[in-house]
């Protein structure tokens, strides 16, 4: 499954990284505490969060995540989008709250590491 498939299936709004949607998704991670994301997310994961500040791009880039999905319709800071374009990290928006979005991603076959 690729990022672009998720965009299609879940009607995600693409805010940045249009050219990077062909990446294969290795699984999912959800959370808003950056140190947890750094500790546990894996390369190629889609990351569901409600954090909108530019640091999320730095984390996604460092961990080589496939995309950031902002849950609950959160709008990214302009600075976040600028950085995301520079780093080639797709930033997507879903109107669903994190619980439902993750539930549906899971049912669509996106899995994560299971436990810590």
């Amino acid at each position: 499954m690729k990022v672009e498939d998720l965009v299609k299936f879940f009607g995600l709004e693409v805010k940045a990284g249009d050219g990077q949607l062909h990446q294969e998704v290795t699984g999912g991670y959800v959370g808003d505490l950056l140190s947890d994301v750094i500790a546990h997310s894996l390369r190629g994961n889609v990351w569901v969060t409600i954090q909108t500040h530019p640091n999320i791009v730095a984390v996604a880039s460092m961990k080589e995540l496939a995309a950031i999905i902002l849950a609950g319709g959160r709008e990214p800071d302009p600075e976040t989008l600028k950085k995301a374009e520079e780093e080639g990290i797709p930033v997507l928006i879903s109107l669903l709250p994190a619980f439902e979005l993750v539930g549906r991603l899971y049912q669509a076959g996106v899995a994560g590491i299971v436990s810590c």
Binding site: D32, L33, L34, S35, I50, Q51
Partner: peptide
């Protein structure tokens, strides 16, 4: 403060 889950 953000790491504690505040300041969003």
């Amino acid at each position: 403060i953000r790491e504690l889950g505040f300041g969003a």
